[in-house]
């Protein structure tokens, strides 16, 4: 039972990692840019929702605050691309990596200055409620995380494979110039993707903050999610989720059964091993360019 409980909480953690990774992959798939600030977007989303919901701030109804903060984060993502990243169009990937890292620092500072550096948790109507089945006691928040993640993944999978705009995003990702010639408004598509990934980040953040406390440096969690994305194979949506789950599961198990100190190292060690032995990730999609 103990083991099962560990697995479930690991799964819930893994889903949050997976959702952040989903945000990375969305952006990477469509714009070929890597957003190192995704973890901080998640943190910001959580704080926006806390700002709307918690009674010491605005004290809105939880069910009103959630869509509101998702919208706010979507708009922020859209504006971030429109105002800053769009001007980097056609420049080297290294500068984009550096730019997003710097943005992460700024977001962390902003969140710390606006809300607080203290760990805060979201006041949810279902806090502390439990689901009991058999000898198993599950927090409803954990169950909710798993369910929401599963639904989101399915929606995104259908979005990318079935809808017109999803296909346009894929085309823009494969070859920006060619997509532009085909009449796809590449820049707007990019902004939309950023907005979308901002929304996903908000969802991840809200789920995370309803499960436990969050503080501005939680954004660094994004690096773990990044490892998740790479383990699953960059550019693969199910891969991102799987990678998140692997990391989420490995962490509690390693801290329970492994020697001390291993649990912090384990996710990155897995990442390095994957990069060494299966460089493209589990769902490998890389193809080396031939001369």
């Amino acid at each position: 039972m103990d083991f099962l409980q560990l697995i479930i909480s690991g799964l819930a953690n893994g889903c949050v990692y997976g959702l952040i990774a989903l945000g990375f992959v969305l952006i990477y798939k469509a714009t070929e840019a890597v957003n190192f600030a995704q973890g901080d977007f998640m943190m910001l989303g959580a704080f926006v929702c806390i700002g709307f919901t918690n009674h010491e701030y605005m004290g809105l109804n939880f069910w009103l605050a959630v869509p509101l903060s998702i919208l706010v984060m979507g708009a922020l993502g859209y504006l971030f691309n429109w105002g800053i990243l769009r001007h980097m169009f056609g420049q080297s990937q290294t500068s984009i990596v550096i730019l997003t890292i710097a943005m992460g620092f700024i977001i962390r500072f902003f969140a710390g200055a606006t809300w607080s550096h203290e760990p805060t948790s979201l006041e949810t109507p279902f806090a502390g409620q439990e689901v009991r089945s058999g000898g198993l006691v599950l927090g409803i928040d954990e169950v909710l995380i798993v369910v929401v993640t599963a639904i989101l993944t399915l929606v995104f999978f259908l979005f990318f494979s079935r809808t017109r705009i999803g296909l346009a995003m894929q085309a823009a990702s494969q070859n920006q110039l060619a997509a532009y010639y085909m009449g796809i408004p590449v820049r707007r598509v990019h902004s939309l993707v950023w907005g979308l990934s901002g929304m996903v980040a908000a969802v991840a953040g809200i789920l995370f903050a309803s499960k436990g406390a969050i503080d501005p440096s939680t954004g660094l969690l994004g690096i773990k999610a990044f490892a998740a994305a790479a383990i699953g194979g960059f550019g693969s949506l199910p891969g991102a989720l799987l990678g998140g789950l692997i990391i989420g599961l490995v962490e509690p198990l390693a801290s329970r059964y492994g020697p001390p100190g291993v649990s912090q190292i384990a996710p990155y060690a897995i990442l390095l091993l994957i990069l060494i032995f299966r460089p493209g990730g589990i769902f490998s999609q890389t193809l080396s360019k031939k001369v």
Binding site: T94, V97, G261, I265, Y268, L271, L272, L275, P279, T286
Partner: peptide
Amino acid sequence: LPVLRLHGVYLALATLAMSILTSDFVVI
């Protein structure tokens, strides 16, 4: 060496992971 064969972003990622692990390894 294993990562050098890959695209630049993967190198950034591997070195990032390495950088985070440094503190833990110093303790170990």
